[in-house]
């Protein structure tokens, strides 16, 4: 009986954990989808910061004609 209760409890725990992880995964997935559905520069690396070609988020360099 005890063994059976323990098994049921374990199953319930697994189910709860799975539910939890599924919820988190979908939340994460929808958060990712959300950021791709916003204009560039309004989420993640926020303007005036820019993303370099290598993917770094940083302050932009001086503009070319201002450098000379």
């Amino acid at each position: 009986m005890l063994k059976m209760s323990a098994s049921i409890a374990l199953l319930a725990l697994l189910a709860a954990l799975q539910g939890c992880s599924t919820t988190n995964m979908s939340a994460l997935a929808s958060a990712k989808v959300e950021s791709t559905n916003l204009p560039s520069g309004t989420s993640g690396c926020i303007a005036p910061k820019i993303v370099t070609e290598q993917g770094e988020c940083k302050e932009p360099e001086k503009l070319s004609w201002m450098r000379h």
Binding site: S40, G41, A47, I50, E53, P60, L63, S64
Partner: peptide
């Protein structure tokens, strides 16, 4: 609407829409 990071031949990069 989405925009992107853009770069020109002068070496400037910016967000363009």
């Amino acid at each position: 609407w989405k925009g992107a990071m853009l770069k020109n031949l002068a070496g400037d990069s910016w967000r363009g829409y």
